[in-house]
C-alpha cells in the first residue's frame, strides 16, 4: 500500500468517525466540533483528489464560515434559556433504519460505478486559472446568480432577525 493510499484512508476514516460522532454525542457544541473535523478532513480528501480549489474554498468558507456561524447560533440560543447544550434523540429506530437502508443501497449500487481511474496529469496543471476562466465563461450565469443568492440571503437573514416590530 502506497503512502498516498494510507493518507487517503486515514482521512476517510477521520471523516467517517467524526460524522458518526455528530450522531453519537448529545452535546451540541461537541457536535459542532465534530462537524469541523469532518469538514477539514474532507478538504484534505479533496486535495488528494486534485481539487485544490474546492479544498481551499471548503476550508475558508465551510470550516471557517459555516461552522463559526453555527457555533454562534449555539451560543446565542443557549444564552437565551440558560439550559445546557444537551440534545435529545427521537425516532431512533426509523432514523437508523432509513440510514441503513440508504447506506446499503447506495454502497451496493454506487460502488459499481467505481470502475475507471482517471489520469492525474490531465487536470492538475494551472488549476486555479482554469477555474477562474471557467467561472467567467461557461459558468458566468450561475456565478452571477450565486451573487444574487448571496445578496438575498444577506437581506433575508437581516430581515428575519430584525427585532423591532414595524
Amino acid at each position: 500500500m502506497s503512502s498516498y493510499s494510507i493518507i487517503l484512508y486515514g482521512f476517510i476514516l477521520i471523516a467517517l468517525i467524526s460524522a458518526i460522532g455528530i450522531l453519537a454525542v448529545n452535546n451540541v457544541f461537541k457536535a459542532a466540533l465534530f462537524l469541523l473535523t469532518c469538514l477539514l478532513s474532507l478538504a484534505a480528501i479533496y486535495v488528494l483528489c486534485l481539487a485544490e480549489f474546492v479544498a481551499v474554498t471548503q476550508i475558508l468558507v465551510y470550516a471557517g464560515g459555516v461552522v463559526v456561524v453555527i457555533i454562534f447560533g449555539i451560543m446565542l440560543t443557549t444564552k437565551l434559556t440558560g439550559k445546557p447544550l444537551e440534545v435529545k434523540n427521537g425516532n431512533l429506530f426509523p432514523g437508523l433504519l432509513a440510514a441503513l437502508a440508504f447506506a446499503s443501497m447506495l454502497v451496493k449500487y454506487q460502488s459499481m460505478m467505481a470502475t475507471s481511474t482517471a489520469e492525474l496529469s490531465t487536470m492538475s496543471e494551472n488549476l486555479v486559472s482554469k477555474t477562474g476562466v471557467e467561472l467567467m465563461t461557461n459558468y458566468v450565469l450561475p456565478f452571477e446568480l450565486a451573487g444574487l443568492l448571496l445578496l438575498m440571503a444577506l437581506i433575508g437573514a437581516a430581515v428575519t432577525t430584525r427585532s423591532t416590530p414595524e
Binding site: L145, M152, A153, G156, A157, T160
Partner: peptide, 13 residues
C-alpha cells in the same frame, strides 16, 4: 440546483 435554491431560500424568508 442554483435557481431552485434561489426560490427556496427566498421562500423560507
Amino acid at each position: 440546483f442554483i435557481s431552485m435554491e434561489i426560490i427556496s431560500i427566498s421562500s423560507y424568508v
